[in-house]
Simulated assay, not measured.
Amino acid sequence: MNPPVIRGRGTADNPHNRFAATRSVAEDDGWYQEVPPTQTTEVRFEQAKTIIARNTSPDLPFDRSINPYRGCEHGCIYCYARPSHAYWDMSPGLDFETRLIAKSNAAEVLEQQLSKPGYVCAPINLGANTDPYQPIEREQRLSRQVLEVLLRYRHPVTIVTKGSLVLRDLDLLSELAERRLVRVMISLTTLDNELKRTLEPRAASPAARLRAIRVLREAEVPVGVLCSPIIPMINDCELERLLEAAKQAGAQSAAYMLLRLPREVAPLFEQWLHDHYPQRANHVLSLIRQSRGGELYDSRFGERMRGEGVFAELLAQRFAKAMRRMQFAGREALALDCSAFAPPGEQMRLF
Rank of each mutant, 00 (worst) to 15 (best):
G30E: 06
C76G: 05
L210F: 11
K196M: 13
C121Y: 01
E295T: 10
I77K: 03
F311N: 03
R211A: 06
F19V: 02
A107S: 14
G75N: 09
N125C: 13
W88Y: 15
E42Q: 13
P36L: 08
E264T: 10
P58F: 01
Y78F: 12
S143F: 11
E218A: 14
P262M: 13
S299I: 00
L243R: 01
D29R: 11
Y119R: 00
R280D: 12
F45T: 10
R154F: 08
P83H: 07
V160N: 14
F19D: 03
D63M: 01
K162S: 11
F328S: 01
Y153S: 06
D95E: 03
K162D: 07
Q290M: 06
S286M: 11
G307W: 05
A21C: 03
L259A: 12
R138V: 14
R292E: 06
Q134F: 06
R138A: 13
A20G: 02
E244S: 03
L100A: 05
E240C: 02
E220I: 00
E108N: 00
R54M: 08
D275R: 15
E238N: 05
I159H: 06
R300K: 13
L314D: 14
T11D: 04
R260G: 10
V166E: 07
V265I: 11
R82Y: 05
A312L: 05
A12Q: 01
R214E: 15
Q134Y: 04
L188M: 08
W88M: 07
V157E: 05
P344Q: 07
P3M: 04
A340T: 15
V25E: 13
G307R: 03
V149Q: 11
R168I: 01
N129S: 14
G307C: 04
N129A: 14
G330I: 01
V149I: 15
N17R: 07
R349D: 03
P92W: 08
R154V: 00
C79L: 04
L259Y: 10
M185N: 15
F269L: 14
Q347M: 07
P92K: 12
R64F: 00
G75T: 08
A312V: 04
R197H: 12
E218P: 00
S84M: 11
R300A: 15
F19L: 15
L94R: 13
L170Q: 10
E139R: 15
P278E: 12
L191W: 05
A266N: 10
E137R: 03
G293E: 11
I288R: 04
I124H: 01
A20M: 02
S24R: 15
A219D: 04
I51Y: 04
H74L: 09
D192M: 02
I213V: 14
Q347R: 10
K116D: 07
R318I: 00
S187D: 06
P83F: 07
L181H: 03
R300C: 09
R9L: 15
K196L: 02
T40I: 00
C121K: 01
A255R: 14
R23Y: 04
P123N: 05
S253C: 13
L94V: 05
R209A: 06
N14T: 13
R217W: 03
Q252K: 09
